[in-house]
Amino acid sequence: MWNEEKERSASRRVYLKQQKRRRYLVFCLQWLLLFLLLALWELLGRWGVLDSFVVSSPSRVWRTLLNVASNHLPTHIGVTVYETLVGFSLGVLIGLTLAIGLWWSPFLSRLFEPYLVVLNSLPKIALGPVIIIIAGAGTRAIIVMALAISLIVTVMEMLSGFLHTDEDLIKMARTFGASRRQIFRHIVFPANLHTLFNSLKINIGLSLVGVIAGEFLVSKAGLGYLIVYGGQVFQMDLVMTGVLILALVAALMYQAVRLAQWLCTRFISHDRG
């Protein structure tokens, strides 16, 4: 099979080298782009093209960041991260449970299908006032908001994954007399591990959207609160700092899910490459 081993490995080396160079180039350009954008933002402010008072500037954001003591940044970040993680975990747990239930009973899944579709397209933020009245104007309402936004998507995503499991694999398990529970445990769930992680990746972002929306409506702390507060007192430095930190938090959370997926496919189930 691998005759001409030496020639092959020589051309392979060239190929791998090219691939590596390309990855390196993209990586460098990505950072360069970020640097250029920040530099442009700063310079346009200094040259007076942009009004730094309105759009802030990297140096102003930096100063705000250094001023941790007066603006309680760590507390705000902590509150937002906490609310997001709680909303996210609840969304995944409840969503997964509901999806399993609907997979279990084709009757129920047909019964609830139109409701899921409508709930899915409904902007959940519209439920804000109701949520605040029921859950109280505080952390609970914010978590419920995050849950409302991520839950239905999880249910729909996971259910569709479960229902699209290879019928023949299920038939194979049935020929060995597997019960519905065993079919789920040994076939349907492992076959949908990638669906689960895709749904986690979407959910972590959606939970953050829910938390920020919730914090805009009711809160005494959190990045959403900080942004709204900054806007009200016309401290745009605070707003931009909040937005930048939010971007960083979102990216880190997404990477955490990716890391979990990597660990999971590496150590628990085999990646079907």
Binding site: M172, F176, A191
Partner: peptide, 23 residues
Amino acid sequence: LQRDYLLPWRTIWKNVIFGLQVQ
């Protein structure tokens, strides 16, 4: 069945004992 339908996330050994485990 028509194809082998080995479970891609199980090793050969785990696949071979699948029926035994299920029952």
